[in-house]
Nucleic acid binder design. Structure first.
Lengths: 132, 132
DNA sequence: CTGTATCCTCTTAGATACTG
DNA sequence: CAGTATCTAAGAGGATACAG
């Protein structure tokens, strides 16, 4: 794509490019359910149903999609025990523990800053802006 | 690490809740253009057109929406000089510098880990999974 | 229990044209 | 220069039913 005239790229890698694998991973780990899966799995191994219960409000479809995306990214490890009824365990890979730590750091920072953010909104009269 | 049974919430705050202000902020700062705006503004003040040029591929509409969302979150500061033609400068607030650092840390980690992730994909035969 | 398949709705992104 | 208005297409996400 056409880009910066003479400046250095914004990021060393390709987060900037159109078809960008790293942006895809970013979307997976910061997606609505991805964040909650990572936070939940930091506490240890969970089964599919455990995750559905711990993360209230997630549909089977979205949980399955989220887990598959993170598994393909080598962030989540899926271990299926060949028994009936099926028994599948999800956990974080070493890579997953690293990224989960950063995601939770960001999430914790935002939660800790919400009072300041909401105060700034009231002072300026700004409404919580929506993207889109 | 202790296996949680069910009791404590996943996060201290409300990232988990249905209508959740902090998840909204998370979406703003990790959105496709939000990440690039934060990274660009870490380098200093930019005008609207500067940002469009530095961040190639962003439409006027999406850049305006992204900036408005981040401004309402007290992450981006907008200063309009009352001249013709209009002259508007965008920069990070102190809050914005804090969150931008964490977002870039996450983005950098992902970019640095992409070789490992893509190797894992090839080993397992997994396709880059898509959410949705 | 652990998922898939299908259908459906609502949101969002982007292109284009226009305004102060 | 710095946006807004409008339209369309794509995608996210949920409900339900069903399969291994």
């Amino acid at each position: 794509m056409t880009m910066s005239t003479s400046d250095e790229p914004l990021l060393r890698g390709d987060l900037f490019a159109e078809a960008c694998p790293s942006r895809e991973v970013l979307r997976h780990v910061t997606s609505r359910w991805g964040v909650l899966v990572l936070v939940a799995l930091r506490r240890g191994t969970h089964r599919f149903s455990d995750l559905r219960r711990v993360i209230g409000g997630v549909s089977e479809k979205m949980l399955a999609q989220t887990l598959q995306a993170l598994e393909a990214d080598a962030i989540v490890l899926r271990v299926a025990h060949p028994v009936v009824p099926p028994h599948v365990e999800y956990s974080l890979t070493p890579l997953g523990r690293e990224v989960a730590e950063r995601v939770q750091d960001l999430a914790d920072w935002i939660e800790g800053s919400m009072p300041v953010i909401e105060q700034a909104r009231r002072k300026s009269g700004a409404q919580p802006a929506r993207l889109g």
